[in-house]
Nucleic acid binder design. Structure first.
Lengths: 253, 253
DNA sequence: TCGATGCTACGGCCGTCACCGTAGCGTCCC
DNA sequence: GGGACGCTACGGTGACGGCCGTAGCATCGA
């Protein structure tokens, strides 16, 4: 009764509080590539014991941030939906602003900002290159709550092996812009973008890096995209020596 | 060294932790209408003593979420930028999902979801109505990272008394979609949207409600918008008895 | 000049919660 | 079946941090 204007403040605080713990934030960050991970993997990634991780995961579940799929004796956790990933991206934009003083370490930052998965689609320089090439070519049109493909845009998706008319859940836009936290420019999200990313992994045009959201564009992938997408241009990533960081677990003191 | 994949996790946690305290969340929520408020006002809105609020504000400043303008013996705090508002909106989307069980109280929710300011532009049913009318009429086109006005769109802005070619900071898109947390559909953000909102308040087409982000569309405003924007349609808000909630401060026990 | 006001700095109190120990339940492999 | 493995439930410990007291500095008005 003492806080007349705090309509959603408490709810907002509840969600933010869930994300505000380092261990939980690490887990959420790791899940932002859209994959589903087991509790043990998440525990290791977060740097805590499995018991602790279990508690965190239960809290995240109760808060509606995660979904779980039980499979045998494993439980695979994933983000509850694209809104969660989008909210996290919004926070990443803040966390990586120049003003805040904290930036990604340059090596790692270069890999991640070249190409990575953002929930289920491409982000980074690669995602933006795709977005820009489609836009510059007039293959995108404004639509209900996002983008729609023009006829020429649909032809491009067909050429890449993605059915542009597969209407997933009709509520969500097939294509929409998503602000990129590393480049501060939009890339393509939505289930068509996800289908395109999926196709790229299937065909070996892109590959996931181990233990990272970073993505590698293969030589074949570059050729395919340049052929199908007039104007597509994406600077090569530096070869980036594999850091071979492979400490299995923090040695218990 | 024990968390190989947590590149931005800690930074993300830091930002989220700042937003995760109820008092701070209330402050941020109150500032989401883009206005600048004094420390005392924010203390009252957050339901804490001024000393406590001062500490919170210092933390939010250090985290880069707020900016301050000293004016005499008052210090006016406001959000540091649109990115902050956007990140908060992203969290609100999560906080107000059906699944979470917590929704806005219906009375208040109805007022806020009809029309409100979102940092510096209109959101809610009003914001969406403007967005939809412009889109349906073909007045928007996809542009570099957002929307651009077509010739007919520019004419509409001119008719409303807003210069569509005022290029603010050229880095930011003049118009871009912004997901609405109450309606789950996009409304218009960007500095042209802000200019339009500003014009509406100046001309008395809309009015702010006291102690709330809610906005009222006046009869004149409705006429003006319907005349200038073919297809504009915005259901009337329920008259909504003014709750006259006016407890000056929580009685100290 | 003096008092009132807005805001911030410091100190002590106390609640909340992250953490990991042990223990228990369900599942897979041999 | 027996054992190993994945995960969760519970309890105690410790620390971080929110809270408000008093005190101090800057500004405005008379």
């Amino acid at each position: 009764m003492s806080t007349p204007n705090s309509y959603s403040g408490p709810y907002l605080a509840e969600i933010a509080h869930l994300m505000g713990d380092p261990a939980r934030a690490n887990m959420l960050h790791a899940l932002m590539d859209g994959r589903a991970l087991t509790a043990k993997e998440l525990a290791w990634l977060a740097g805590v014991a499995p018991q602790t991780a279990s508690g965190h995961l239960a809290k995240l579940m109760q808060g509606g941030l995660l979904a779980v799929a039980a499979q045998g004796r494993h439980r695979y956790y994933r983000l509850a939906g694209p809104e969660v990933a989008q909210a996290l991206e919004g926070l990443m934009v803040l966390a990586n602003r120049e003003g805040s003083g904290r930036r990604l370490p340059s090596r790692v930052g270069a890999e991640l900002s070249f190409a990575r998965t953002c929930y289920d689609h491409f982000a980074g320089k690669l995602g933006i290159a795709i977005h820009d090439a489609l836009m510059a070519g007039g293959h995108l049109a404004v639509s209900e709550g996002g983008y729609a493909l023009t006829a020429s845009g649909k032809a491009i998706f067909v050429a890449l092996g993605v059915d542009p008319d597969q209407s997933g859940r009709s509520r969500r836009a097939a294509l929409r812009p998503c602000l990129d936290w590393s480049e501060r420019r939009p890339h393509l999200a939505g289930h068509l973008a996800a289908a395109l990313a999926c196709r790229c992994f299937e065909m070996g045009w892109t590959r996931r890096r181990k233990d990272s959201r970073a993505v590698t564009l293969t030589g074949e992938g570059r050729s395919v995209l340049e052929a199908a997408l007039p104007g597509f241009r994406c600077d090569a990533p530096e070869p980036a020596v594999t850091p071979s960081r492979r400490e299995p677990a923090p040695a218990p003191a």
